[in-house]
Design a protein around this nucleic acid. Structure first.
Lengths: 175, 175
DNA sequence: AACACTTGTTTGACATGTCAAACAAAAGTA
DNA sequence: TACTTTTGTTTGACATGTCAAACAAGTGTT
C-alpha cells in the first residue's frame, strides 16, 4: 500500500496551478502580461507570497519575467494552464450537467480535483459524456430520466433507486 | 474567485484520512486496536511521524489511546474512515467499471480524490451508477457499447466519437 | 524638487507533514 | 537479574505555502 503517497506526485500543486491560471486570466487583458500585484489580487493572497511562488515557477520554466518585472507564461506554462482549465471544464460539466450537482458545489469539487485526476481518466470521462449526449438512440432521454429521478426521489424506502439509503455508504438518509 | 481556497477546507487532510484508514486496517486483526509501529509500517512512514500525527487526531477526538499506548478509532473516527472508504469505492468503481480506466490508475485517482470530493457529488455519482446498471431498459448494453468503443477507437480522424482529438483539451491525440 | 503612493522583494513567523537521530520506557531473552 | 531489542516520543532539520512587516525602487502629484 503505497498508492496513498501518490497524492504528492503531481505535475502541479494546487497553488502552482492557480498561479498559472491567474497569470493567464490577468494576461487576457494585457497581451499575456501580468504584474505580481494583479496576480495577488486575483488569488487573494499577499504580493509577498506571489513573489516567492513565482520564483519556483520561473525556475521550472513555466513563467518568464520582463526587465520591468512583468510576468508571462512560457509556452510550457500556457500548455499546463490550458490542461488544467480543460480538465476542470470536463469535471464541472459532468458534475453539474450529468450528475445534477448544484453549480457552486460542482465548481468547488472540480477545482479541488482538476490538477489531481490523471489525464487518462479525464479523457475517458470526456469521451463518456460525448458518448452519452451524441448517441442517436435517444440517450438524452436517459439523462433526462436520471435528472427527473433526482427531483422526485422521496429519499425514503418507497424510492425504487435509493431505497431510503445513501448510495455511498449505505446508511439511511439523514434527510 | 476564492473558490480555489476551498482546497484546504476539508474535514480531513489526505494524511489524516490515511492514518484513520491504516488504524482501521490494522485493527481488523486486533479487535480495533493498533500500535504506532503497525500504523507506521502500513503507511510506510516513520514512527515519529505517526506519533506526531496521532497527537492531532487525538485532540480532534477521532482516535483514542490505551494505558498501554494502543490506538483505536473513536466512533467519530470510525465513521470518518468508513465515509472515506465508501467514497473511494464509489469513485474507483466509476473510473474502472464505467469509464474503463486501467485498474491501477483508477486506484490512484480515487485515492487522491476520496477525501476532497463533496458527499453530495459522491452520492449523485453512486446513484448514477446504480441507475445505469439497474434500469430495465437494457442500459447495460449502453455501457457495453461504450466499453467496446474504447477497445476499437483508432484514435484518428476516422473515429466517429473522438475524431482523432483529445476530448479534454481538443488537441490531436499524441498516440 | 519634494513628497506620497504603489510595487516587488525580503525577512521572520507560523502551520503541516515528513525525515533522521537520540532517547526513555517496555517487552523479550539470556 | 542483566542484557538486548522493540517501541513510542522528542528534537532538530527540511520543504511548501501562507502571513505581516519592513524595505527599496519606481511612479505620480503638486
Amino acid at each position: 500500500m503505497e498508492t496513498w503517497k501518490q497524492f504528492e506526485a503531481n505535475e502541479l500543486t494546487h497553488s502552482a496551478a492557480h498561479h498559472l491560471l491567474a497569470i493567464h486570466e490577468v494576461g487576457l487583458q494585457y497581451g499575456g502580461w501580468a504584474r505580481v500585484s494583479d496576480i495577488a489580487r486575483e488569488l487573494q493572497i499577499t504580493r509577498g507570497s506571489v513573489s516567492i511562488n513565482l520564483r519556483a515557477l520561473k525556475k521550472r520554466g513555466l513563467v518568464e519575467t520582463d526587465a520591468h518585472r512583468l510576468v508571462k507564461l512560457t509556452p510550457e506554462g500556457l500548455h499546463a494552464a490550458k490542461a488544467v482549465m480543460a480538465t476542470r471544464a470536463v469535471l464541472k460539466t459532468f458534475f453539474a450537467d450529468v450528475l445534477g450537482v448544484p453549480d457552486i458545489q460542482a465548481d468547488i469539487d472540480s477545482c479541488k480535483i482538476e490538477h489531481l485526476i490523471s489525464h487518462a481518466t479525464a479523457e475517458r470521462l470526456a469521451l463518456f459524456q460525448r458518448f452519452l449526449t451524441s448517441d442517436p438512440d435517444a440517450l438524452q432521454q436517459l439523462l433526462a430520466r436520471f435528472q427527473r429521478f433526482h427531483a422526485e426521489c422521496p429519499h425514503d424506502r418507497s424510492c425504487d433507486v435509493c431505497k431510503g439509503h445513501c448510495p455511498v455508504d449505505g446508511l439511511p438518509h439523514a434527510i
